[in-house]
Amino acid sequence: MDLSFFVVLLAAGIRYGTGTLFATIGEIFAERAGVLNVGIEGMMLMGAVTAYGAAYYTGNPWLGLLVALIVGGVMALLHAFVTITLRADQVVSGLALTLLGAGLSAVIGAPLVEVRDAPQLPAFPIPGLAQIPILGPIFFDHNVIVYIGLLAAPIAWWYIYRTRPGMELRAIGEYPAAADVLGIAVIRQRYLYVIFGGMLAGLGGAALSLAITPLWVEGMTAGQGWIALGLVIFASWNPLRAALGAYLFGAIGRLPLDLQNLPLFLANPQLGYFARMLPYLFVILLMIISARGNMRRRIGAPAALGQPYVREERGA
């Protein structure tokens, strides 16, 4: 194995991890606001299928992207209403969202399975930068959606840790009552961030169907929504660490394709099934690593994660 193998692997990792990255950042916003949404997989699937369909029927992939944002947001709105306003269990509501998204996307996508020629988002090697050895192919020779992902992580980080609304976001997930008495509209902000998280999940799905693996197949996310959920924990709710996790996951998710050309795998093609387990085992491994780390450093979930906020209840 030479250097070029790793360059290809890292470049592919950034490419393949982009969909997961959007979903992970979206979930970070929702969870920072105190709402757990385990329905990412469903929102991604709906984003993927509607984006692909919209791009196919209108001929414009950007419209597809827009539709995915809206669809993801609407699905998250359902979750927000059920968990924030009606205060139903967040896990069960999220599961319902996933099952709904999986079923609905299969129904909507049935006529799209045969479609192979929907317009894709354009690839765009950045002139000059893409020619730099090693760094060029890794960072600057990608589809436009990948650049958006590369920018999204630092912007999200800056927003959460360095801006006033970001500070309020952290507060409403940590101690909503404290934010409430200072006049921060907890319920409204939770709605907004859950919806925003859903939009990013939809975007992640669209990134898959319009650029990364450009077509629609039933269940094409293959658990990426759940992986995003794990990456949020690995990332300690920090978008920059989320990017690291998502790109690593992308590289490992891509590994089976690279391995299949090795002599060992050429001789035993069934070994590829083990290679395909790697991304999922990798996430479990990440969880184990971060569990130990978080225990030591006392970095936990937002304190109010999973709890509905109620003001008018009689205290002691």
């Binding site: 599961l95 319902a96 969202l97 996933t98 099952l99 709904l100 079923g103 609905l104 299969a106 129904v107």
Partner: peptide, 11 residues
């Protein structure tokens, strides 16, 4: 359709 209805029912 069955899958979709399951999601709807739970939701």
């Amino acid at each position: 359709i069955a899958g979709m209805l399951q999601g709807v029912i739970l939701f």
